[in-house]
Design a binder for these strands. Structure first.
Lengths: 193, 193
DNA sequence: TTAATTTCTTGATTCAAATCAATGTGCAGG
DNA sequence: CCTGCACATTGATTTGAATCAAGAAATTAA
């Protein structure tokens, strides 16, 4: 008997019983997105919180001049969504796109509120996740501006090497905030054969 | 009778009773920091969460090459700290410094846990705050890389014009991620007389 | 298989901000 | 008042990534 990927993720971060998990799991519905499909766009009110079962998404920001920047790339076994928009029912300022054919578990707001109220350990896990997200975003923000392309690339190579196999270069470039040409040169400079 | 600045901040974001506030307030202790004093450094375990009564702090990141970047500047009426370090008792990867003589309300972890468990509305407010913080950080990250210095400056001028009066130029420059020289030129270009 | 399209690499050029360097300004202390 | 220091401005130069422009490789379709 295999552990469900969602239970696996939760238990990796927080003490969580199978009994609680049996209350939690039925609150989700399964959804699929095709490669390149937009899950939501800036201006939409986000209706779900998502746990990724299969595939890979990118969340990106478009500034006033139409320049876009990928904020993060999330793979199976992680959460995605837009918590402020979801929680307060306000327009999102981010865009979420499937980079592959994807399968997710999606939970609506009423069910999420039910979970928060009735599964205290889920609420705590949820809060812990937010602390991690905030710390990670702050670090990303610091790194994005202080580090040169070569350093950003080596950081990615160290932390998430499989992404470089999984995604085309231009997606990596958008994530690192550089042009594909620059990434190509960076790779050349940083390749040990 | 004046509303306490902390109650004011909480009520601006969430329905919160005076009765709850009377349970909350005694959990804090008052602390002072002198101008330029470090509250915590990267590597420290952060012992408090802070609400700013007076003054102004910057939180900054130092990368592997010793280059620093100010992530945010917080003024009176706002929270600051490092939630992941505080919560999990792990080393912080950020630095917090007073930019002026400051007075804060500080809460230790045991008291914070007491508050979360015993004042449910505080827990909800806290969660809401995190959603806002995450959305704000994502937007900052998007803006930091896609926008040019002139755009970053005009954004700051629009959103927090008083900061430009309050702080020296070199602190603003570190916050925008540009050199003081560039900021000086940007200001010249963008000043209507 | 070839053809067509997409993605990646490489080179030449441009451009914007960092850096380097000097000067100017305003304030604090003697 | 002048002196000294911190901060800000301005100009000259360098630098590194973006942009522009071909090609080469890889993938997909025919």
């Amino acid at each position: 008997m295999e552990t469900h990927p969602l239970l696996k993720e939760i238990q990796a971060r927080h003490e969580f019983s199978e009994a609680d998990f049996e209350k939690l799991l039925p609150l989700f519905e399964e959804r699929c997105y095709k490669k390149n499909e937009m899950v939501f766009k800036s201006g939409d009110v986000v209706k779900y919180v998502f746990f990724i079962l299969q595939g890979c998404f990118r969340q990106f920001y478009i500034n006033a001049n139409g320049i876009e920047r990928t904020i993060y790339i999330m793979e199976e076994g992680r959460w995605t969504g837009e918590s402020l928009s979801f929680m307060n029912e306000v327009p999102a300022n981010m865009n979420l796109q499937a980079l592959e054919d994807c399968k997710v578990l999606a939970m609506t707001k009423p069910k999420w509120e039910y979970a928060i109220r009735n599964i205290p350990e889920y609420a705590i896990y949820h809060m812990k996740n937010h602390h991690r997200m905030i710390a990670w975003l702050k670090e990303q923000l610091g790194a994005a501006v202080t580090e040169k392309p070569d350093e950003l690339y080596r950081r990615l190579l160290k932390e998430r090497p499989h992404l470089l196999q999984r995604l085309p270069q231009y997606e990596i470039a958008k994530y690192l905030g550089i042009t594909p040409e620059t990434l190509s040169r960076v790779r050349k400079r940083n390749t040990r054969i």
